[in-house]
Amino acid sequence: MNPNLQITPDGRLRHLLTLEGLEPALLRQILDKAEELDAATQGPEKKLGLLRGRTVINLFFEPSTRTRTTFELAAQRLSADVLNLQVSASSTSKGETLLDTLKTLEAMQADMFVIRHEASGAAHFFAEHAAPGVAILNAGDGRHAHPTQGLLDLYTIRKHKGDFRQLTVAIVGDILHSRVARSDIHGLRTLGAKEIRVVAPPTLIPAGIEAMGAKVYHSLAAGLDGADVVILLRLQKERMLGAFLPSLGEFHRDFGLTRERLRHLKPDAIIMHPGPINRGVEIEGDLAYGERSLILQQVQYGISVRMAVMALILGAEA
């Protein structure tokens, strides 16, 4: 994959496909823009005119509620026209290729495609074939990347914990199948997190994760010890095609966050989760919206972060 595909010659975002390889200054620019837009939409009037006249197409080849609706809201709050394409009912189910779909929709004068696809690299494929002036925003491709989720996680951590260089972050759960974990690790490493931990049974740890800058733990107590932030990952049952775990109950027993296990974290540690939550699996039910949890705030921040990415890519100025 071409690492420079998503950056223009003058260093601006052309597409957003992955956080891997992005410069710290660019990540900070996106987070700063999200903070600015978050503040600008706190009043009763939440609509800004930054993308008036632009067209954004949500092209989801995988089902999604939270991600698709936050992208839709983000575009609408910037005053863009938004089309949600139900791909399962489109021509792709009749044999039309991905490239045919892209070119057909480009002919409708779309400015940006927000794409989610089950195949790793699909967003890069679209970006490589997109017409000049048409932007591609990756909303999750296979196990590869989910850059806006990574950005909203970074935004949440920075807003509530400050300097990444002082922070130990534990990512717990299905690391193997998680594009969120990969995006989080790339972003945390780029912004200089003190320590990045991945915590899971051996069957859910991918090969090469340590080369990305993460320390591997197979004990939840050890992985949580002294952590400032814990990011719980959804156990992705739809992606688990082999015998990765004996049972969901056993996973919760060994790796689920419970009230008793909070004692391993720092007293002011925060709890995050990209959603949707499997209650009683990744987390004890009442902790999900408890005093340490920022799970609902993450949803709100996700709108501002996605607004920021859209505004920066399409060249709008606040």
Rank of each mutant, 00 (worst) to 15 (best):
N4T: 09
L5F: 07
L5Q: 06
I7A: 04
I7F: 02
P9V: 11
D10L: 02
D10G: 01
D10M: 00
G11Y: 13
R12C: 02
L13C: 04
L13S: 02
H15D: 05
H15C: 01
L16R: 05
L19M: 06
E23C: 10
E23A: 15
P24C: 11
P24W: 15
A25N: 14
Q29W: 00
L31H: 10
K33F: 04
Q42V: 11
Q42K: 04
G43M: 00
G43T: 04
G43E: 10
P44D: 11
K46E: 13
L48R: 01
L50Y: 08
L50T: 03
L51I: 04
T55V: 09
S64E: 08
T65F: 08
R66M: 05
F71P: 13
Q76D: 04
S79F: 01
V82T: 10
L83T: 12
N84Q: 07
S88P: 00
A89D: 14
T92L: 15
G95K: 01
T97P: 02
K103Y: 13
E106Y: 00
A107M: 06
A107P: 01
A107H: 01
M108E: 06
A110T: 11
A110E: 12
M112S: 10
V114R: 06
F126Y: 11
A127G: 09
H129L: 00
I136Q: 03
N138C: 01
A139Y: 01
A145P: 01
A145L: 02
H146P: 06
H146K: 07
Q149E: 10
G150S: 10
G150C: 02
L151G: 07
D153S: 06
D153W: 09
L154V: 01
T156K: 03
K161H: 12
G162D: 11
G162C: 13
L167I: 06
L167A: 07
T168H: 13
T168M: 14
D174F: 11
R179E: 03
V180K: 15
A181W: 02
R182L: 05
S183W: 12
D184Y: 08
I185H: 13
H186R: 12
H186A: 14
G187F: 12
L188I: 08
P202L: 09
L204A: 04
L204N: 07
L204G: 06
P206D: 12
A207F: 12
G208E: 15
K215C: 14
Y217I: 03
H218C: 05
S219D: 15
L220H: 03
L220S: 05
L220K: 00
A222M: 08
D225N: 14
D228Y: 09
V230G: 07
L233E: 09
Q236G: 02
E238I: 05
M240P: 04
L241T: 14
A243K: 14
P246Q: 13
E250T: 00
E250W: 03
F251Y: 15
F251N: 07
H252A: 12
R253L: 13
R253V: 08
R253I: 04
F255Y: 15
R259S: 07
R261I: 02
L265F: 12
K266M: 04
P267C: 11
I271A: 06
I271L: 14
P276G: 09
V281N: 01
E284C: 13
E284R: 12
L287G: 00
A288D: 10
R292N: 10
L296G: 00
L296A: 03
I303T: 08
V309W: 07
V309D: 07
L314Q: 06
A318P: 15
